[in-house]
Design a protein around this nucleic acid. Structure first.
Lengths: 157, 157
DNA sequence: GGAATTAGTACCGAATAGGTACTGTTTTAA
DNA sequence: TTAAAACAGTACCTATTCGGTACTAATTCC
């Protein structure tokens, strides 16, 4: 059903939570408790995000994880790519040589369109935007004080 | 890894093939042979597409399947939705009541953004475009005769 | 009525996802 | 220097889903 995995789902929740207090450093147990997610999963996910460069980790007693960049500089595309590999909806993209239909398949060159369309869509959403509880349109229609309370300002769509 | 299933993959290949000769009617064995895909799978997929209203089926000896609409009026979003259910990247969209984190999860309302972004991306690609072997940009840069050979004109990106 | 064709459903094996456990490494601080 | 807190890596198990097949109706044409 064209779903992201739960791992990624959790990962986005965690990163969003971290983005609200972007300066703070979080350790796995605290994050798990605050996000109401199982610790082993949280641990696993944070390790992955750190390895992929989206988080910076510090070991030792006072260790923990912090965002590697400003929330506005981290896109959904990056997060998803970090947690489940390159965003490619179809198989025949990565394994170009293996496809037996290569010469016959008229669709092949067009997969790129679909993949790119999705990649663009995901690249256009930043972590900073995810911390804002309302949609940009509604925010600008409402009173400005609310939008100003979020740490990052969103570029207009 | 945020993939469509092979069923959907095959489905798009089949529909693209049918879109090239949009008036013609195809039966399952012929289509399987022409697309170089296993017949049982093709059969299964065509049934589904017919049930979802993307294809029109005719039973009996001279039966077969035909496109229900013009290729330009069928979007990727519809095809994917027909073959693997509604396009919703995350779970908490459809099962609103069940999510235990509902009251705590600050991300929840923002999933809509991601889902809609992807839905928009997929809605913007039509079956007619998939029959064109080259990307729009390259086509307009090349000689016009080539682009004119495709049955449908693509809107500029 | 017989043959061709779609419709529906049930089933199985293999791959993948969700989740857990364990062992190692680094850092702080008493 | 040693113990504890935290991250790093990896291996493993179970349940679900996917890819694929088979079989039995229901229709339609000749």
């Amino acid at each position: 059903m064209i779903r992201i995995t739960k791992q990624t789902d959790y990962g986005i929740v965690l990163l969003t939570h971290m983005a609200v207090h972007a300066e703070r450093q979080f350790n796995a147990p605290d994050l798990a408790a605050e996000a109401h997610l199982p610790l082993p999963m949280v641990s696993k996910i944070l390790k992955l995000l750190a390895r992929e460069g989206l988080l910076i980790s510090h070991r030792g007693v006072k260790g923990g994880y912090g965002l590697a960049r400003r929330p506005a500089a981290i896109s959904m595309a990056e997060i998803i790519a970090a947690l489940e590999g390159p965003v490619a909806i179809t198989e025949c993209i990565d394994e170009e040589g293996d496809c037996a239909h290569e010469r016959l398949c008229p669709v092949r060159s067009n997969w790129h369109r679909i993949n790119e369309a999705i990649l663009n869509a995901l690249s256009g959403i930043t972590l900073a935007e995810m911390t804002n509880p309302l949609l940009p349109k509604l925010v600008t229609l409402g009173r400005g004080a609310y939008a100003a309370s979020s740490s990052e300002r969103q570029p207009p769509l």
